[in-house]
Design a protein around this nucleic acid. Sequence first.
DNA 1: AAGTGGTCTAGACCACGCG
DNA 2: GCGTGGTCTAGACCACTTA
Lengths: 237, 237
Amino acid sequence: MTAQSKTTEFKTWQAVRDEVHRRIHARIWTPGQVIPTEAELAAEFGCARATVNRALQALAETGLVDRRRKAGTRVATHPTGRATLEIAVIRKEIEGRGQRYGYALLERSETLAPPHLRAVMMLDPDQRLLHLRAIHLADAKPYVIEDRWINTGAVPKALAADFSKLSANEWLLQHAPYTHGDITFSAAVASGADQNALGAPESSALFVIERTTWDRQVAITSVRLAFAPGYRMSTSI
Amino acid sequence: MTAQSKTTEFKTWQAVRDEVHRRIHARIWTPGQVIPTEAELAAEFGCARATVNRALQALAETGLVDRRRKAGTRVATHPTGRATLEIAVIRKEIEGRGQRYGYALLERSETLAPPHLRAVMMLDPDQRLLHLRAIHLADAKPYVIEDRWINTGAVPKALAADFSKLSANEWLLQHAPYTHGDITFSAAVASGADQNALGAPESSALFVIERTTWDRQVAITSVRLAFAPGYRMSTSI
DNA sequence: AAGTGGTCTAGACCACGCG
DNA sequence: GCGTGGTCTAGACCACTTA
């Protein structure tokens, strides 16, 4: 036996991950401290270095440790939590909680992009957009208002689509693939239009999600989702 | 050359991932469709199966594909976006955007747990909690109100800590490790106390984060963060 | 029962970045 | 320069799930 006694074998990367997690949690390795190298841990745990590597990469993804070549692996000083939110199709979200889904298109028009959207979506000044307003219902009660703008330059087929039955939310997923997107969460006082559509009392606080999706450099769509009062978005870390 | 022509070699798992991503994006493999097995792709790409495995696992984590033993790998029908939010220490968040951080403790008391918290934190009826209210400032302007309850049964040292200089937010990270936590995001109308502390106009909409952290089965702390009007939480997918 | 993903290994080479 | 993590390989066995 070498300097490091090998008490137990950790053969799977999950077991190694849990053991390292335990040692950090138990303050055997404290925040900021460099932990043994992959090779050393592999020797101690009686497994291949690749297994240790897999385990430490998983921990790095959660932010529990910081890894840098040559510098080694150290316990994060500020265990920055990382919450992962599932952004599902609204219909699925409602059905997923056992409620009946409803949908109605409120408004449809083709117009020039308003200035703030021209900036957000980086559009030409003369680019025309398809503007949709729709409401999604859960058990016949207003759930969320969808206020959406679609770049018809990028998705011309959208002009021919019938959004009175199928929401743009779903149609776009099927017909307009995107490479990435920006999301912003905020709180807003319900505007008059929001109040009406959601049946919300005056000066309610609404949970708002704004999302713009892109195909490479081209903006596909920008949407504002204003949820009925009382909406809560949950996750765990 | 076998049935599958090998035009290009993809030697790194990132390259394989990108190529698979490209084919899905280009509708060469459509939603719901089963894509070739790892072995087949490895043969086509001229790399080891482990490399393909790594690539497909990465895509599975983002939700772009679904993988099941025996059933194979198929393109997800509802590309459920997955937004990852960094939950940093508030001081870091403020300093990170180049603003000056300020902090003040508003209130400190030791009391029995109010009923709703007893439920959330699963506490004994006679468990006493440490209650703290504090405000965090960015460039001397109110940024967020921290309303926190600490389970002194789990973290007795908290009773002796001085929270007038160091926020509980940071003290707990250093002294009370947790294994997991729940987070909820919502919007709320500013209460009278919120209004006062934040200097917010009447009936403002506040962005609220509620978080409870646990060490195994024991609740460590439960906190409500009410952000000043205008706060936006952003990420990308 | 058989096919497919999940993982381990031992060795190798590479790439980054600290000193 | 050189130590550490990052990745690839070829082969093997395992675990799960569906047919």
